[in-house]
Design a protein around this nucleic acid. Sequence first.
DNA 1: AACGTGTACCTTGTTCAGCAAAGTATGGAG
DNA 2: CTCCATACTTTGCTGAACAAGGTACACGTT
Lengths: 111, 111
Amino acid sequence: MQFDREFLTGNLTTLILALLGERPMYGYEMLQEAERRSDSQLRMKEGSLYPALHQMERGGLLVAEWREAPTGRSRKYYRLTARGRRAAASKRRQWETMAAAMRTILGDAGA
Amino acid sequence: MQFDREFLTGNLTTLILALLGERPMYGYEMLQEAERRSDSQLRMKEGSLYPALHQMERGGLLVAEWREAPTGRSRKYYRLTARGRRAAASKRRQWETMAAAMRTILGDAGA
DNA sequence: AACGTGTACCTTGTTCAGCAAAGTATGGAG
DNA sequence: CTCCATACTTTGCTGAACAAGGTACACGTT
């Protein structure tokens, strides 16, 4: 089951921070990883992802580095700064708080 | 812990449908209920709620009815239509799907 | 009577995230 | 030599939520 795009709104930054908290990745890889791990339910769009990465880089959460792939293609790898790691932890906590609150309401309203 | 408003984005309709799925309520009551049940974590704003209710009414998800409160004040009670009940079930399912997908990513990224 | 407070609803203007759509460029498969 | 997947980027738009303000009434206090 595919959900409306509105459900993703507000979670993009959280998602990016979570992925990069694991290991440095490049943009296109994040798109694929998110889709793969969620059984194709969670599809980030390029037009959302790349601007978000740039903004987060400007905000000092990420740093970028161009690396040569084995294939010869160039890839822009992003990794978290110290600030980014703090933000990742914060976003994760916030997401869990929000999810718990939502569940309370949804749960009360006879499943 | 209070979370950024962006985490609410996209969940307002879901929340309204869940509350009304339980019983008819008036707008101001929904604000209080959501806040009370979530330990003040989930605060809908009037400027978001009322326009959303109007839009959902136009969309045929809700019907409104003015009722006199014991105090003498007038309240506008909303209840779900059949269409609204279907939407409520759908939104709930979608939320759970999204939450599961998010949890997968957040979980993988070393807690 | 006048005032403040909590209830209850509504609207206008703004902002900002995410998206659609399009573009650039490269490597490999056929 | 063409097509497809990879990989990054940008411009312009849309739409949800919000801030801020407004209206009005009931009730308690002074």
